[in-house]
Design a binder for these strands. Sequence first.
DNA 1: CATGAATGAGCATTCATTCAT
DNA 2: CATGAATGAATGCTCATTCAT
Lengths: 207, 207, 207, 207
Amino acid sequence: MTEAADLLAPQEGKRERAKAANREAILEAAKKVFAQLGYETATVRDIIRGTELASGTFYNYFRSKEEVFEALADDGARRFRPILRAARDQAADFEDYIRRALIAYFMFLRAENQAEGRPVSERRPHVHADTPQAIAVYNEVREGIEDAIARGVAPNVDADYLASACIGMAQELGAAMLERTPPDVEGASAFAAAFVLGGVAGLPRKS
Amino acid sequence: MTEAADLLAPQEGKRERAKAANREAILEAAKKVFAQLGYETATVRDIIRGTELASGTFYNYFRSKEEVFEALADDGARRFRPILRAARDQAADFEDYIRRALIAYFMFLRAENQAEGRPVSERRPHVHADTPQAIAVYNEVREGIEDAIARGVAPNVDADYLASACIGMAQELGAAMLERTPPDVEGASAFAAAFVLGGVAGLPRKS
Amino acid sequence: MTEAADLLAPQEGKRERAKAANREAILEAAKKVFAQLGYETATVRDIIRGTELASGTFYNYFRSKEEVFEALADDGARRFRPILRAARDQAADFEDYIRRALIAYFMFLRAENQAEGRPVSERRPHVHADTPQAIAVYNEVREGIEDAIARGVAPNVDADYLASACIGMAQELGAAMLERTPPDVEGASAFAAAFVLGGVAGLPRKS
Amino acid sequence: MTEAADLLAPQEGKRERAKAANREAILEAAKKVFAQLGYETATVRDIIRGTELASGTFYNYFRSKEEVFEALADDGARRFRPILRAARDQAADFEDYIRRALIAYFMFLRAENQAEGRPVSERRPHVHADTPQAIAVYNEVREGIEDAIARGVAPNVDADYLASACIGMAQELGAAMLERTPPDVEGASAFAAAFVLGGVAGLPRKS
DNA sequence: CATGAATGAGCATTCATTCAT
DNA sequence: CATGAATGAATGCTCATTCAT
């Protein structure tokens, strides 16, 4: 506000830096907590317990658990969208697009989960990842597929069903991939692409 | 309650029958409650509220919410397994098996969910069905597929990946199906079968 | 429910008795707490701290602080109304009615507050009693006065103003009375009656 | 910090003026907030939100919510006392004094509350105004009455009771007046004066 | 065995107050 | 002095679970 002060004071911004760091700390903690406990089970207290902050401080940054969740989802979407977009732009044809998209997806998945995942043996067996990023990516991919069909670059099949099928497959395959050490993005991508392309080929065209 | 039985049955077994009836009532209520509220959101109180029993009585039958959940899952599995088994036994070949299994799966899904579903618009978008039965069936199907590959009736591909892919696809497709009114088991089954069979055909054989 | 058992079991009802006792304990504690701290300042925890019950137990009896408050107010009203009614029915004329009503009011006040009042030296100086009973009685009295004017037994003056004036006077006078030891109901009643009757006599009649 | 500047200081006083302005801003905001929310419900945050200052700044001027409240009360008293004093000095006799004092009181009340009042329908029915000024005036008036009796210009009645009666009446009548639009100071004053004078006339003299 | 009141840990959230900047 | 982020105690309330009846 006072410019004179600004000139003298490069140390101004310490507060801003702390603020950003705290926000990041909360998001980081929330990411872990959501991954380990799931959205419903996770509590705001679990999240702040994962930081060095006090309970009230959480509310200086987010108004609720829901809001952190959305911030995280936005973040995931923001980072994944351009990747998927690039895949689409560079793709020669539908087959190429599928291949690129799947590689992008599995790479993203590995990147996001390299930190630490849910303990291998779940309490709730095999209920799907409801982490914010997963959901964001989920939606992104679904749109991509529906869009491809709408634009006619993909065969004219039931778009909703196809998107669901691909998404479900990729999601579950992703989980399987992540359980291998190291997660073989290559193998999973190749498998998924072949499966989808073969699958689409076998599908009945819509009237 | 069942008068005929009462007539035949001096009073012996009255307790047993009451016990069984109570247990059944709890399971029935739990099924509805899980379907409507989801596992996490549902409370033990929600469940007993769905019966005519007192809260404490719940604990004479189950030690916790988790335990009812598992009982329900076991129940689902117990009822689905023979159906799947029959599909396998009657199947002429792999293609036929897949078709039958998928039809069985989607029919089971519809049957389980026809009662009353979660309000259409979820709070958390597209987090998977976490009803006990779905999970049970999930595992059943996975075993079926892995078994088929192991027995050589299915092409020699990565079993884990294939099972995951099929399961994920079927699960998500099932969700999409249930959102159509009425749920078209036929369409979904046909779609899924074509997709899987095409997909398998496109898959690289393992060395 | 089982009548036979009922016959055998005079000890049945232990639970009911405990329940009633607890309810009473909460009301009793709430009465003290509201009197000492005021409605706003008082917390549910303050109330249960005044009993031997656990925090959650409060909610088996009342849904909120507001609800205890109302129960207390209802209670006060229920006990005061017949007294006031009797005063009215037995009164020979308006003067007699006022006298009786005021005596009834001050007696009720003494009875309610004989237990223990707010510490003489308040933190918030002289903000009026917002105890449930006081409010209940307040409303009762106001209605009595307005009714008397409406029925023509009282001089035709501004009813709203008169009720307010009487109420305010009685309230404050009551507080003053309670600070004398022992509270002289007689003196206060006589003073108040004379004041009101003289006051009414001096009032301008409405057109 | 700049003491030197202060000593030399053409610009001297800038700080003081800012300080005074801030203090005033807080008091002004507090007045509104207390009037709208009531003392208990109002929070320090509500108050500073009504200024352009930062939360911490509040504590450079007042140590707590309680302290602002008292400052406001002092302020009210400081402004009302001379008015009441003037009424006394100009009064020809006791009757005149009462009349003038009540007019002064109701005018002051209207002036203080003309800005914006609490929403008409209170949550808690008819708990008295707990604004600081009202309390200050309350005390001022009480002293005035007790003083008058002590000085013998008023009839020799129970001073404590008379003060209480008048105060209570005026307070409640004031509330009733404020609920009329526009608040008729004239009518209320006339009513109150007639009531009090008549009332006093009817009172038993002390031995 | 059924009952349902009691329990108390736990949760989300608010708020007065402090203190580094 | 002003600032506003951090703090953590306190609050209302829920809920799984226990246990006397």
